[in-house]
Design a protein around this nucleic acid. Structure first.
Lengths: 309, 309
DNA sequence: ACCAGCCACAACCACTCGTTGTGGAAGTAA
DNA sequence: TTACTTCCACAACGAGTGGTTGTGGCTGGT
């Protein structure tokens, strides 16, 4: 079964005759006949009832036509999705679980007519992401770049702040406190696997641990979120840090606790990078959406000193 | 762009290597390479990043993959929709506007998981429809066959009664009465275009006009519902008959009136024909649905004497 | 009866798409 | 480093798909 066969079938169904469909498709009537015959042979049903004045849909044809059209539409969409030129806005969200992805998803939910794709640039740091935005691989990227250090041609706007929370198992000494100060975490073991050196995450946690004297173990292999959560649930000493908007631990079958950090609250600042002057309407709408629902920066927050604040 | 190319791409994306995808598809690694290359050439993007230990999705590949899968799923569905054997229940509703179609649609709305198709057997009478049910062209058909005259192998159950209503324009003498008796229509001109001789509709209206001395003009070409409604709206003498559940006149931009018929109320009895012993679960569910929401037969109804009542 | 319109069959041919054979690049182990 | 493995791409070739033109049968209108 071939797409061209479906296209041909749809054309015949629409025009009512093989010859007209052939003209529409720019092939001969005989080719149309062959395609339809092959399609019918493949499906083992008769799709079109041939009369002396054309063809009309058989019962199976009636049923099949909307399906055929759906396939063709999906095809069209698939091509549009990647064809350079007029493709949907493409936003790098770093990781599908964390706050930017959630924010983009919420934006899409409230504006379903906006066509956009959320992707993850793999294995890249902020500078490489900026390069990807510049060369058009993506149209925007959430990164923790200081706003005033954006490369030439890149506009940066801080649109999303993610306050940090401590994630611990039920046996952890801090499991039942209402909140905790970063300074109180000194001496506790904090494990954040999967952070690659050279990335902005590494820099952020580096700055955090230096500022509050923490011992953050950001190295080690990442065996996946499930493994991390299992380890947290079982351990009385292990803890990790997550953004308050992150969608970790889902489904919530581990009895894990999120403990807000306060006095001060470390926030991870997500800055939206885009090409300077990019007027893409969906990009504009996304920016507007984030500005209104955007970073509520309460007093007493901490950000790395290399972030403009 | 070919479906096989999409299938190949999905296989490579899943397995991460060309060779594994080739094994899965039962072709050579080189063929996979060619298909992917052709697909990428067609789309003018790189879908897969080749490494020395396999391939992973590029950014465009990430975006394209769900679209490709959607196309493949639609393809699958299209085949299932008509392939003899395990296809959805197929119900003949005569005409998409009238009561059976509405009832089937309501059923589908309340049971979206049930897969069924509503089709229209064209140019057929009740006997031919019964034959179509017998030979499996359709699984069920709404017809006005006397229940006790169903052919061998056909089960018939009266599951839907459609009381008749008079449809008139604002200038018609009966435009503002609350209801009207069929006998009062004697002398009025009733036009029901598009009824073909030999069909059960013709027999029904024939019986109706004989029973009450009406002059029903059931002949003449049918220029479409719009033309009929235009004629009704403009005429002070023209009227037509419709079922109370029919979805005529939509959008309701003509100021037409529906006048119920009473004393007695003629009802068009829709009988569901199906193969005796057909255990299709969707068919069973449809029958159950119609039985509960089914024919409320108030007193004082009229049906043709050839309908068992 | 004849003609016109429509679809199907036949013969032919180009080109797609598969195969096998081979080579280059990159990671791995000795 | 060298040797070896793994993985993908290129080349040559052959089968078969899918296009073309030519023709014929059927049907409905004139």
């Amino acid at each position: 079964m071939d797409v061209e066969a479906l296209r041909t079938f749809a054309a015949v169904a629409e025009t009512g005759q093989f010859q007209a469909a052939a003209d529409e498709l720019g092939i001969s009537q005989q080719a149309v006949s062959k395609r339809i015959a092959a399609l019918e042979r493949h499906l083992e049903v008769t799709l079109l009832v041939r009369t002396s004045r054309g063809s009309r849909l058989s019962l199976d044809g009636q049923v099949f036509l909307p399906h055929a059209k759906k396939v063709l539409a999906a095809f069209e969409q698939a091509e549009q999705a990647v064809r350079p030129g007029s493709r949907p806005l493409r936003v790098d969200v770093l990781n599908r679980r964390i706050a930017p992805a959630q924010a983009v998803y919420r934006f899409y939910r409230s504006h379903p007519e906006m066509s956009l794709d959320a992707v993850t640039l793999s294995n890249e740091n902020a500078a490489q992401a900026a390069q990807a935005v510049l060369d058009g691989t993506v149209d925007a990227s959430f990164r923790a770049l200081p706003v005033d250090q954006a490369p030439a041609g890149i506009s940066a706007e801080r649109l999303l702040d993610a306050p940090l929370e401590l994630l611990v198992g039920p046996g952890h000494p801090l499991a039942d406190v209402p909140w905790v100060s970063p300074a109180d975490l000194a001496g506790h073991r904090i494990w954040i696997p999967g952070i690659r050196p050279g990335t902005e995450w590494a820099a952020f946690y580096q700055a955090l641990s230096e500022a509050f004297g923490l011992s953050i173990d950001a190295l080690g292999p990442n065996f996946g979120d499930e493994a991390l959560m299992d380890a947290l649930a079982d351990s009385a000493s292990l803890a990790t840090l997550v953004g308050s908007g992150d969608r970790y631990l889902w489904p919530q079958n581990h009895d894990l606790r999120r403990i807000p950090l306060r006095e001060p609250t470390p926030v991870y600042t997500h800055v939206l990078l885009s090409r300077t002057g990019d007027q893409h309407p969906v990009l504009t709408a996304l920016r507007d959406h984030l500005r209104t629902s955007g970073p509520r920066t309460p007093d007493g927050v901490w950000v790395p000193d290399w972030i403009d604040r």
